[in-house]
Nucleic acid binder design. Structure first.
Lengths: 246, 246
DNA sequence: AGTCTGCATCTTGTATGCAATATTAAATAT
DNA sequence: ATATTTAATATTGCATACAAGATGCAGACT
């Protein structure tokens, strides 16, 4: 059985390795929204040829992290307010489905795992470690979605979460909001542990709404001259992405 | 304004052109599930080099139509029953969200457009033209989703619909089911025209359920030796796709 | 002064070539 | 005859080279 062979050297194809690196650069903000991706520069930086780099860029384009400009390369997509709002709406619908299914299908081990992550996150919260808190937070939500036992759902959710991560990471919300979020997470854990899907869904929904409210302000603030000028283009870009391959 | 410039020559990049061609081949079944994509053969067929072809294949991989086999190229993904069931579940959640929003946001022109498509579809139904009926059916559903005014939602929905199209197309259901589907569509039109989101959602839900029931049988039937043997691999493939770039 | 045209330069798009890996067939040993 | 190893072949992965398009600037013209 392949699955049991843990000693296997994972020779990931270069293009996926590169895609990962690029993703980090974008999510962590080193490549900012609007930045052009110069193939020569990036290829030299990663010490690879342009061929796998270009393949990676195509992948990121479909993931929605970059936008392809025919004959002019690619640039990092803007996170507009309406864009983020759209994504949150979809995430909401997906989490609702996930909550429903997870309450039916989660095993006791799954719940134990969520509890473990939750406690770990609590520790990070008390230590004031925002970065680790964020990571664990994402992992908990992802784990709940995975409990739904729907691979498609998990894949789509992960992609959206990743793209939203860019926004969430930047919106370093208040201590007050933070502790409120922790409280909500207590309730989430409670609801799924008792497999109360109605309650879980209602909490997930308001949790998400609060999350959005927290970053909404930040998105509005950043609507200065430069960004505003680019917003129109970003919307067009979104459109392009939608229609480019359809 | 760029949006008003309708005279622009659209020079689609080659890789997206190729992606389109490949998509057709897969959706229409010329490239069947499990078939390997030989780069040399396809490049010769399209009369292009392997480079843009490879880029196109990466795109299709992320869309879920093909599966990348490291160092061994790519193959057309299997449509397993559980796979399709997962997709239907997600589509259900998305359509629910779309129905809600569409009832709020659809303009009168939108509704008129849906009605137009509906009538056109009716004509195709009466003419017994399955292929055109299918196309219009898809366009109606897509239009409803677009009325929600959420670009992310539309993009995700389109991708799932496309992948499911492979299954639906093959499951040429009974005349009985067909006319029942038409009836459901009458109700859908009615509900959205009167902006009754509760009713719309309930109809969309049962409509989708019926669709799934119709193709479920076909998926079960095709679970013969060859397919069964490949199913295990297909499940692994799905897993790969999920984790490959995460 | 301002705009337009043509040239130089840079960037992306595509094709080709070479190296590494997988697949097949043949040959040898059991 | 079957299994195992080895060699031949085919295919993918990556790099490089060349072509086509975009960008920026200088000079001509109004």
């Amino acid at each position: 059985m392949d699955a049991l062979n843990n000693d296997a050297i994972d020779r990931k194809p270069l293009h996926s390795e590169v895609a990962e690196r690029l993703r980090s650069l974008i999510v962590q903000g080193e490549l900012a929204p609007g930045d052009r991706l110069n193939e020569r520069v990036l290829a030299e930086r990663f010490n690879i040829s342009r061929t796998p780099l270009r393949e990676a860029i195509k992948i990121l384009a479909l993931e929605g992290l970059v936008r392809l400009l025919p004959n002019r390369g690619a640039e990092v997509t803007q996170l507009t307010r309406s864009n983020v709002e759209d994504m949150f709406q979809v995430v909401g619908a997906l989490e609702a489905l996930a909550g429903e299914l997870a309450c039916q299908r989660a095993s006791d081990d799954d719940i134990a795992e969520i509890r473990r992550l939750h406690n770990e996150m609590w520790a990070r919260f008390e230590a004031g470690d925002r970065a680790e808190y964020f990571t664990l937070n994402q992992r908990i939500h992802a784990k709940i979605v995975d409990c739904a036992g729907n691979a498609e759902l998990s894949a789509i959710y992960r992609n959206l979460a990743q793209r939203l991560h860019r926004a969430r990471y930047m919106a370093n919300f208040s201590k007050d909001r933070w502790s409120h979020a922790m409280q909500e997470h207590e309730e989430i854990l409670d609801a799924i542990a008792s497999r109360d899907s109605a309650r879980l869904n209602s909490i997930l929904k308001s949790h998400l709404q609060n999350k959005f409210d927290a970053i909404k302000n930040w998105l509005d603030e950043s609507g200065d001259g430069r960004s505003a000028a680019n917003n129109g283009a970003a919307v067009d870009a979104e459109q392009d992405r939608k229609t480019a391959y359809s």
